[in-house]
């Protein structure tokens, strides 16, 4: 294979340096090189959304992006959604609404929803449903996930955040 590349990645506010093969996906790099295992792999072909991370503000499937493509980008994974030992308001809403069971898809829903809410802070319920339609959950039937995101948007608007 082509020689490894030295790569600098900005993840959750920390700058990391690692050696990767050019073909290594961002997901594998996060999980294997940086030990950020909160990003999960559900299909590795860009359909299930479990591996979604936020790259420069946009929700991106990290299984479809090479790590080297993320050079110089600002990346947020589920580990970076809240300060340590706290839950973000969205994470808290997932907890309050029973919006997770096995939890495997949850990081992808959280990152997708965060990126979505930053673009559309006052969504309708239907817009939330569309926004997460590329993420698959097998446990909850989605209803509490939608509730949690709608609830978070409402609270953020009310508090002016």
């Amino acid at each position: 294979m082509t020689a490894d590349r030295r790569l600098t990645l900005h993840v959750n506010g920390i700058t990391h340096s690692c050696e990767v093969e050019p073909r290594m996906t961002l997901a594998d790099c996060l999980r294997e090189k940086l030990d950020l295992t909160g990003t999960h792999l559900g299909c590795e072909h860009g359909v299930c959304g479990a591996c979604t991370v936020i790259v420069d503000g946009a929700a991106v499937r990290s299984c479809l992006m090479f790590a080297v493509q993320a050079r110089d980008s600002m990346i947020t994974t589920v580990e970076g959604l809240a300060a340590s030992d706290t839950l973000s308001d969205l994470q808290q809403a997932f907890h309050d609404h029973f919006a997770l069971q096995c939890g495997f898809c949850t990081p992808g829903f959280l990152t997708t929803a965060e990126a979505f809410l930053s673009e559309n802070p006052s969504p309708t319920r239907g817009e939330v449903q569309s926004a997460i339609s590329g993420n698959i959950c097998r446990c909850t039937g989605y209803v509490p996930i939608i509730d949690a995101i709608v609830d978070t948007a409402k609270r953020r608007l009310e508090s002016g955040k």
Binding site: R31, L36, T37, G38, T39, H40, L41, T77, V78, E79, L81, A82, L87, Q91, F94, H95, F98, L100, C102, G103, F104, T106, P107, L110
Partner: peptide
């Protein structure tokens, strides 16, 4: 749920 915190913060420990 008692399970939620670790799963919501990416601190769950699945086999991979």
């Amino acid at each position: 749920r008692l399970e939620d915190r670790r799963l919501l913060t990416g601190a769950g420990r699945y086999i991979d």
